[in-house]
């Protein structure tokens, strides 16, 4: 089993900020728009270095999405930045008509996704965004797991011609992805080889899946661990290959169980290779105020819950064997 380590914890949103700055330096077509959350989105460095290519829209997200769509006409590559809640639900129709249906090359970059926003509470903790964005035809949906992967994803999506939803978070999390790892849209990353169970995780849950894998190994359970950073288009081949090997799957995500990674994986499995699946996700509820750690425990998104889900899904596998 491969052992993962990290030298520091960093926030994924800073990975976005770093990636955006690098992009700004190498491609003058890249422009950035922000709806009054420049500091939270870590867009300040870009704004400072490229004031002519940074557009502060004020607290007007609908207008920001429309302007971004318009800026693609003339060849710009706009990156919009605000919280995940205001990047999706608040502006769904603007994204649907002016960006997705119109096939505009806009990168919708969303921070503070999921429960780990913490104390601000449920008004700001969106758990439905992956579902909403996945349903839009042509929309690429990406949820990277750490600073390095978010930075690489930010740079990679500029080279993709079409709308992208890039989702990241607020808290610091272990930064373990190698800096030289190539980010390929739609390509899963195989973190660990295993034979007993497949754990497929995205975003902040990837590190917890790694921790769960270590705990399971101590108990003699061999977990195949996959990091799915691109939820759409999903790497069906990687999922099926692993399911064939292990015969059962646990998915883990910081999102409602409805509409997210779990359902995307279930669709792949039920269409091609049905095996039992357990869903580590929020059980169709809103969040609440609390520290990120408290919330992840209360809502069942921690390492313990992944281990529990593995035990459960392996029992189901045996029933059907």
């Amino acid at each position: 089993m491969k052992k993962y380590t990290y030298s520091e914890k960093k926030d994924t949103r800073s990975g976005f900020g770093a990636g955006l700055l690098e992009l700004g330096r190498k491609d003058t077509r890249v422009v950035a728009l922000c709806a009054d959350l420049t500091g939270s989105l870590k867009m300040d460095a870009f704004a400072k270095e490229f004031p002519d290519r940074f557009f502060q829209t004020g607290i007007a997200e609908a207008n920001m999405m429309g302007i971004a769509a318009g800026m693609t006409i003339g060849g710009k590559i706009p990156f919009t930045g605000t919280f995940a809640n205001f990047s999706t639900g608040r502006v769904y129709d603007q994204i649907r008509q002016s960006i997705a249906y119109s096939e505009k090359n806009v990168k919708i970059c969303a921070s503070h996704a999921g429960l780990t926003l913490g104390e601000d509470g449920a008004t700001h903790q969106i758990l439905e965004d992956i579902g909403m964005m996945r349903m839009l035809p042509g929309m690429v949906v990406i949820n990277p797991c750490d600073f390095n992967q978010t930075k690489a994803a930010t740079i990679a999506i500029a080279a993709h011609d079409g709308p992208v939803y890039l989702r990241f978070g607020r808290p610091v999390v272990p930064n373990f992805t190698p800096t030289d790892q190539v980010f390929e849209i739609g390509k899963a990353i195989h973190l660990n080889e295993g034979t007993d169970v497949t754990i497929i995780a995205t975003g902040h849950l990837v590190w917890k899946a790694i921790e769960a894998g270590e705990r399971l190994a101590e108990a003699g359970i061999s977990a195949d661990i996959i990091n799915i950073h691109t939820i759409k288009p999903i790497d069906a081949a990687a999922i099926i290959r692993s399911a064939k090997k292990t015969g059962c799957v646990v998915t883990a995500e910081e999102h409602n169980k409805i509409g997210g990674l779990g359902e995307a994986v279930a669709h792949v499995l039920s269409s091609s290779y049905p095996v039992p699946q357990e869903f580590v996700a929020v059980q169709d509820s809103f969040g609440e105020s609390g520290t990120p750690e408290q919330l992840m425990v209360k809502y069942g998104l921690d390492t313990d819950h992944i281990v529990g889900a593995v035990e459960k899904v392996m029992q189901r596998k045996n029933v059907h064997a």
Binding site: M64, G66, T72
Partner: peptide, 16 residues
Amino acid sequence: QGLSVAIGAAQSKKLN
């Protein structure tokens, strides 16, 4: 939505 899109296109023209 059209006014926002048009404004974006106008700003794109300025950048170009």
